[in-house]
Nucleic acid binder design. Structure first.
Lengths: 197, 197
DNA sequence: TTTATTTTAGTACAATCGTACAAAAAAATC
DNA sequence: GATTTTTTTGTACGATTGTACTAAAATAAA
C-alpha cells in the first residue's frame, strides 16, 4: 500500500466518522462524505472496494482502539473487585474521550451495516465483548470475593453491566454535558454492591 | 372515521409491524408492506398522510399497550421493593409476550424515524419512561427501605434499570429461546441487592 | 524529457423509494 | 336504480444513492 493510499484511506475513514457522527448514518452518503473531505466521490470508490468496506473499517479501527485502551488497564489490577471497577471506569472514560468515533460506531451497529438489511444484531460480536466481564466475575467467585454466580447468572450480570455502559453512551449522546465522573461513580457503586458477597 | 377506514388502518399498521419485525426497517418499504398485505401501494397513501404517520402509529399503539400493561401491575403493589420487582417482571413479560411489536418499535427508534435523519435519540420520550422508576426509588428512600439516593444518583439507577430491560430485549432478539424466567429472576435479584439499605 | 502508472474528477447509469395522480371499482346515498 | 362519494388500483415522476466508467491530472519511472 503506497503512502498516498494509506493517507487517503485514513483521511476518508476519519471524514466518514465525523460525517456519520454529525449528520447520522442515513445522511452520510458517499457524496456527502466526499463533499466534506473536499474530494470527488470517485476517490472513495477508488480507495475502497465499496461503501461497506469503508464502514467496516470504521468499526475495525474502533475495536482496536477500544481494546488497546481497556485491556492494559484491567490487567494492571490484582483483585476482581478492582478489575470490575476499572472495567467500568475505563469504558466510560474511553467513550467520553472518543465521542465521535463511538457515536459513529453506534450508528453503524444500530443501523446494522454489513447485514443485508435484515434484523441481525451482531450476535457473535457481543459474545466477545462479554467474555472479559464473565472472566472477572468467575475470578471473583473463585476467590470468594463475589457472591455466588452460576454460569448463566454470571452471563446476565455481564450483560447488565455491558448494557449499563452502552446505555451511558446513549445518554451521553442525548446529554453531551453529562457529569461523566458522577455517572461513573454511581455505576461502580451499583455493580460493586450487586456483586458483593 | 368510517368502518373501512379504521379496519384498513389497523390492518396496515399490523402488517407494517410484522414486516419491520421480520425483514427490518430498511427493507420495509411501502411496496413491501403493501405486497404482504396484498393491497396496492396506493391504499397506504390513501389511509395515511405519509409513511411517517404510519410508522408513528406503530410507536403510539406500542406505548399505549405498554402503559396499560405495566401501570396497573405496579399500582397493585404496596412496598417500593415490590413495585421495583413488579416493574422489572412486568416489563420483561410484556416484551416476551409482544415480541413482534417490541422488535418493530426498536427498529423504528434505533433507526430514528420522525427525525430528519439527524442524530436525535428521542430525548423527551426517555424522560417519560424514567419517571416511574425514579418515583419508586424516591418512595423507597422516603420510607427508609432503600439506600440513600440523591436526585442524580437515582437518575443513574433508573437509567441502569431501564438499560437492563432494553438490553434484555436486544438479547431476546438475538436469542429467541432465552430463558425469560431465569433472566427475570436475575435482574430482580441484581436491583434488589443494589437498592437495598 | 518522455513514458508509464497511479490517482482524481466528473458524469452517467441502474435501482429503489415515497408520493402524486388518473381512472376504475366499490360502496353509500338518494 | 341512478348518482354521488369513498376506496382501490396501477402507473408515472422526481429524487436519491452506490457504482461503473472515461478522460484528465498528477506522480513515478525510464
Amino acid at each position: 500500500m503506497s503512502f498516498i493510499e494509506k493517507a487517503r484511506r485514513a483521511q476518508i475513514v476519519e471524514c466518514a466518522i465525523e460525517t456519520i457522527a454529525e449528520v447520522g448514518y442515513t445522511q452520510a452518503s458517499l457524496g456527502e462524505i466526499a463533499k466534506r473531505a473536499k474530494i470527488s466521490k470517485g476517490v472513495i470508490s477508488y480507495h475502497f472496494a465499496n461503501k461497506e468496506e469503508l464502514l467496516e473499517q470504521i468499526t475495525i479501527e474502533y475495536y482496536i482502539a477500544w481494546q488497546s485502551y481497556i485491556a492494559p488497564r484491567i490487567e494492571a489490577q490484582k483483585s476482581p473487585k478492582e478489575m470490575l471497577r476499572v472495567y467500568i471506569e475505563s469504558n466510560l472514560a474511553f467513550v467520553a474521550e472518543n465521542r465521535q468515533h463511538v457515536f459513529a460506531v453506534i450508528e453503524l451497529v444500530s443501523k446494522n451495516i454489513t447485514a443485508d438489511g435484515k434484523l441481525q444484531f451482531s450476535a457473535d460480536h457481543d459474545e466477545a465483548v462479554l467474555v472479559p466481564i464473565e472472566n472477572i466475575l468467575a475470578l471473583g467467585v473463585q476467590e470468594g470475593l463475589f457472591r455466588k454466580f452460576t454460569k448463566s447468572s454470571a452471563r446476565v450480570m455481564a450483560l447488565t453491566i455491558r448494557n449499563a455502559i452502552d446505555g451511558f453512551t446513549m445518554e451521553l449522546m442525548r446529554k453531551p454535558h453529562l457529569d461523566v465522573q458522577e455517572y461513573t461513580r454511581e455505576l461502580v457503586t451499583i455493580f460493586d454492591i450487586s456483586t458483593k458477597k
